[in-house]
């Protein structure tokens, strides 16, 4: 009798644990449901193609074209990758292959601590240092050549700088792991064949670690696309397609965060529709990273 009730209890507990585990499925389902249902009405009335490829974002006049926002997000992200990826991979190579073991450990844990710094702090840093630096040092020089350049300092370049810094910890930490995971035999074989250390690194180690490095770049890209607070403070939030690095820009995330507080019903729905676009973009990027890691047996 007692054995039976014990068995029932165990089964109930197992079911309850299963429900908890399924909690994340519920969460993702709820998020998807609410974002899509809230954004649906504008997508339908304005037309999804007009929405995505429309050049004019001015909610006051009922215009909801998000191409300028997509362009802003992509330009800032591309800039961040151009600035952050070479520095980050260089740093990973340094830590994995060149630095003394003790220093490498110390520096790496310092970098991982930095990954925890809130994004709003990076944004504030950009606002306090990088925007003024561009305005006071870079712009006077550029203005001699092109007098029409926007003079505020809030720009794609400033956003790219700050995001480039923000993604460094992700890239350094994951790439370093990937390079370290390359078996010692690879190094020995390469050196034994007469390659010097530079050739071993560039022709053997980095190619062998490329799936880990690639995943780190994709994840960093996802982080840059989804980042809100840092770009909100420094890109200027002007919804026009930026034509140069010194133009101000608005991003998908920044626009949602800026305008949500005062948006009317239709405008709100449009902001949710931006959320849909962002959501799909991020899921695609993360799936690529996951697939690459799985495919190559991920050294991460």
């Amino acid at each position: 009798m007692r054995g039976k009730s014990l068995k029932v209890k165990e089964t109930i507990i197992e079911k309850a644990l299963f429900l908890c585990a399924a909690g994340s499925v519920t969460a993702v389902a709820l998020i998807t449901l609410f974002i899509f249902s809230s954004g649906y009405s504008v997508l339908r009335s304005y037309g999804p193609l007009n929405f995505i490829f429309g050049m004019d974002w001015s909610p006051v006049n009922g215009e909801y074209g998000i191409l300028p926002l997509i362009a802003g997000t992509l330009e800032v992200t591309a800039g961040a990758l151009i600035l952050g990826v070479p520095a980050g991979i260089g740093c990973a190579v340094f830590l994995a292959e060149m630095a003394k073991e003790r220093w490498a450990k110390l520096l790496k844990s310092a970098i991982e601590l930095l990954a925890g710094i809130p994004s709003v702090v990076y944004g504030f840093f950009g606002l306090a240092i990088i925007v003024p630096a561009i305005r006071d040092w870079l712009l006077p020089a550029v203005q001699k050549i092109d007098p029409d350049v926007p003079a505020s300092g809030f720009s794609v370049l400033a956003g790219a700088f700050v995001l480039g810094i923000m993604i460094l910890p992700t890239i350094v930490s994951m790439s370093e792991n990937a390079i370290r995971a390359v078996p010692l035999e690879f190094r020995e074989a390469s050196l034994a064949l007469g390659a010097d250390r530079r050739e071993t690194i560039t022709k053997v180690l980095v190619p062998a670690a490329k799936s880990g490095i690639f995943s780190s770049v994709i994840l960093a890209m996802g982080r840059a696309v989804g980042e809100t607070m840092a770009v909100l403070l420094i890109t200027g939030n002007v919804p026009k397609v930026p034509t140069g690095p010194l133009d101000p820009a608005a991003t998908l995330t920044g626009t949602i965060a800026m305008e949500m507080s005062y948006a009317g019903p239709e405008h709100q729905s449009a902001l949710f529709a931006i959320g849909i676009v962002l959501f799909i973009l991020i899921v695609i990027l993360n799936s690529i990273a996951l697939a690459v890691m799985k495919r190559f047996g991920g050294a991460v």
Binding site: V25, E227, G275, I282
Partner: peptide
């Protein structure tokens, strides 16, 4: 396997989307 995949998806969703959802679901709905 499916549950694990959704956990990964949840980990990758940007915070502003959580904000939008929280606003639509908890604050309003």
């Amino acid at each position: 396997h499916i549950i694990r995949f959704f956990t990964e998806v949840l980990a990758g969703i940007p915070s502003i989307i959580f904000g939008l959802f929280g606003f639509a679901f908890f604050v309003v709905f």
